[in-house]
Simulated scan of single mutants.
Amino acid sequence: MWDKQVMKPVSEPANSPSYVQVRLKLLRDIATGVWPLGGRMTLSDLEARYGVSQSPVREALLRLEGDGVVVLHPHRGAVVPQVDAALLTQVYDIIGALQGMLARRAVDHLTRTHLRELEAHLARFDAALDGGDIVGAVAANGAFHGMLNSLGGNPQAKALIETRFALAQATRRLVGYSSGRTAEVKQQHQSLLAALILGDGEAAAQVLVAHADTARDDLIARLLSKGAASTAS
């Protein structure tokens, strides 16, 4: 959805159905670890946190189950699934393809203000990463990609990315970045920004596909390494 005068994305309307708002809050809370991977959420817990009745909570959970983000257990609430290599591969296949498509479209709407905001998100990401603040880095990275996805002007595609990205973000918070990945992701971000500044949507899309592929590989390697370390201990 777009403001026709300034061509900027607008947020979910405040009067959207309660279940829609609960669903978005659940995704945010899964991504930030409020509801951890493998953790259980009871209906009473969810009602208390989001200040709504069971009906919108149940509807939000049903939608997220359809997205593969939670697993429902009748009369017992829901569980956030554990993430493995197969799931991460599927998630990043979706993210890479859709982000590439949105980037191609976003270049037609980018303004200098948008570019400055994107640069600011990347500066916060770099600062957090350099300071060892994984939570801050994940948040800044999500803000950068979320803004760029919004500028692609396809809310359905953006929503698909957000549901899958929540699980990827939750995993990244747990396992962090490998030493080689930190330099690589910074370089990819700068290459992406350069393509956007030039208005080269195809180059931006290619960077994003490579970005998703290497993020997937690093996450899987980190996940397997953490699992091996836990087994050894």
Rank of each mutant, 00 (worst) to 15 (best):
L37P: 08
L129W: 00
S16Y: 06
G152T: 09
T231G: 00
M101F: 13
S11V: 00
P17D: 10
G180A: 07
V79C: 02
H211N: 15
M147T: 13
G77Q: 04
L196K: 04
L98F: 09
P17F: 07
T231K: 06
A215T: 15
P9C: 03
G132M: 02
D217G: 12
V135E: 12
P36C: 06
V71F: 02
G38Q: 07
Q54D: 13
K4M: 04
W2M: 08
T182N: 08
S44P: 00
A128M: 01
Y50W: 10
L27G: 09
M7S: 06
I197E: 14
T113D: 14
S178Y: 03
L27I: 09
A183G: 09
L148D: 09
A168Y: 09
A127D: 11
A168R: 07
F125E: 08
L102D: 10
L118H: 06
H114E: 12
L115K: 09
G152V: 12
T89L: 06
Q206S: 15
A31Q: 07
G227Q: 08
S55V: 08
A48C: 05
A203C: 10
A78G: 01
D93I: 00
T163R: 15
D213R: 12
Q187E: 10
H211C: 08
M101G: 13
L110V: 12
A166S: 15
M101R: 10
A97L: 14
L27Y: 05
A194F: 03
L193H: 14
S233R: 14
L110F: 11
L196T: 08
A210S: 15
A139E: 15
S18L: 13
Q169F: 09
I220H: 09
N141R: 06
R216M: 13
V69L: 01
A137P: 09
A14Y: 03
G39D: 12
L46E: 05
P155G: 13
D3N: 11
V70H: 01
L196S: 08
P155W: 09
A195H: 02
S230R: 05
A127H: 05
L88A: 08
S16T: 06
W2P: 00
A157C: 10
T214S: 15
A229N: 06
A203Q: 15
A139H: 11
S11P: 00
L160Y: 04
S53A: 05
Y177Q: 08
